[in-house]
Design a protein around this nucleic acid. Structure first.
Lengths: 202, 202, 202, 202
DNA sequence: AATGAATGAGGATTCATTCAT
DNA sequence: AATGAATGAATCCTCATTCAT
């Protein structure tokens, strides 16, 4: 199966199934969502699912890979040719946050998968690539003297931690807006990286 | 059942089952771990499990509640009567990181549960209490003028994000040590909070 | 459907499908072989299969009938007008063995079908006809006094048993050749039928 | 699972399931018989089946191994210490026929399994051991000059063919009895082996 | 003639949970 | 307290067959 040539109608069905699965996986979790749940909601027979996918796990893997590619493309586009490493970091943070807000279900699924032996490997690689990007920005900024000379990987991960976690605050009706949170996140991270800070007031 | 009086031997059995479950849940995930897996590894009959617990979900809830109480106690003890809010934040970060390193399986389970409808509520409350603590420290520091006057909740969550995410780096043979990472985390967070920072070099 | 007029190309398709099915049925068994397996290997759509056959069981029945007709024709041709009943038996044994060696997949399928309620009837009749032939030879030989006067049907079946079972030995690289085995089979059967034998040395 | 310690009640259940499966497998075939068919007829839940067996295939393998052990034991007992190789062959033929008549369902199952990739290996070995026994008798008889000096393995297989095939005639109401058929089989085989036979009347 | 898509019953197997002993 | 046995709904997946195009 793996790479079946699909008619336009087939492509649409496939898309329908993926979208529905994303919704259900994010709402109820991966394991508790049965293939029946998916096909029932789409209103097709069970066989259809296996016509388009190799199985439930394969479907999740596909969703994960797609999501990470999407996010990465978004980050790339946002950063563009920006020369200043700190600005690049800022643009990355903002793009990530916006994407995470717009794709909350995908984010939820990603988080689940990250904690599961079965799927973690699928994510690991993509994640490492993303971190590597930030690490490079950090290194550049260290060379420029803009950032403290500390383990760039740890610093990069700190940025990831702030961004991911704060993105999780978004989406509530009464909570802060993306821009508000993004602003704070950016200031927090950039300040956190700065070379000219004393830890405590002297 | 709920609160059965147990003999010392009973308490030990119970503990055995919990420990084993924590291990298996963290290794293979909650859903993929069956009650059989647990009792088989402990070497007892299936009835035993239901003698001590109301079911698999109830067991997980208990594990979660225990874990959060433990972490919270650890944070409290670390902070003690420290008067300086920034120092309190630092001590909290360090305590949290140490605990997360020492209890990786529990952390894994917690992360899973956070993403599941069935268990999120159990965590939410405890989590909010923890954040509230940090929020208070941040507010105090803002009043002192040590920290930028921004939404304290968001700042608090930024700290949580950094701490949790960086704690995840620990445990690899060849990776950095707790203290190294904790140092960086603390500097990153405290600098990130500081009031006297320009975002970009002027 | 049953008897659809087919173009030459159609006949070839049909033949392709039958050949492929024979191969797969004999290799993996009838039930474990799916219609998909067959059409996939031939490289056509599933509809094609149902254009040419009424279904999987119908296909098998057709294969069986064909095979038995073939074998029977071969036996008839081999025996020709031979007047001596024992010679007729010998020629039948040799023809059967040769055919079974040349059509091992068909033999495998036949054996499977013989043990299944669904298909046994299809075979039974053809088989009885074949045995009836041998029975006649045996009767003739008994009349001639060449063969012990025992139940001719049982004797005929003994011949069938030897022939079929010994044919099963053929085909291994390092095993005996058809002629070697056929020679032994013929000697064994003809001696086994002989009227002038004492069971144990006196 | 594999070797679970069973209570008497458990052993009985197990036996019930095996007996029922033998019946159904022989009547309808292995693949067409579902686990549901088996447990429904026994009147227990589906889980029970998997408490006692690793699966449907594992059950069949067990049935096969058991059957072959049984038959072999029967042959051994029948032959006892008989010194004459031809008599040993005779006793083996008679024991085999009797067993095959008494265990027709097992025989049917065995025949099915012999033709299936999945199970043939399980049978092969046991079968080869049985043939090896006969081969030895034949060799002994050849040394004694009682049997033609031909490939002993082929001769042994001829005996197997006759015995198995003729046993298949038994069991019909109106057909011949075991003893009648066994007598003919023995005469046929022993005569077929004899050294002092001319193939055609001179 | 042929195909891609769909159907949906049915198959093997698992598993949380219960219960008699 | 503990066990072996049992339950049966639910799960993933397969497959013979059909149909619109």
């Amino acid at each position: 199966m793996t790479q079946r040539p699909l008619t336009p109608r087939g492509l649409e069905r496939r898309r329908q199934l993926i979208d529905c699965a994303v919704e259900l996986f994010s709402e109820h979790g991966f394991d508790p969502t049965s293939v029946s749940d998916i096909v029932d909601r789409v209103g097709v027979g069970k066989g259809v699912f296996y016509w388009y996918f190799d199985g439930k796990e394969a479907l999740l893997r596909e969703i994960l890979v797609d999501a990470l590619q999407q996010l990465r493309r978004r980050q790339r586009e946002a950063i563009g040719g920006e020369p200043d490493p700190l600005r690049r970091i800022e643009l990355g943070i903002r793009a990530t946050m916006a994407w995470r807000l717009e794709h909350r279900p995908l984010v939820t699924i990603t988080q689940f998968a990250a904690g599961e032996r079965r799927f973690a490997p699928t994510l690991r690689q993509a994640h490492e690539v993303a971190v590597a990007d930030i690490v490079q920005h950090v290194k550049d900024a260290i060379v420029d003297g803009q950032v403290r000379d500390e383990d760039p990987m740890v610093l990069a991960q700190a940025i990831v931690g702030v961004t991911a976690h704060l993105a999780g605050l978004l989406g509530d009706e009464h909570g802060p807006t993306v821009d508000e949170v993004a602003d704070i996140a950016v200031r927090f991270c950039l300040a956190g990286l700065r070379s000219d800070t004393e830890m405590y007031d002297s």
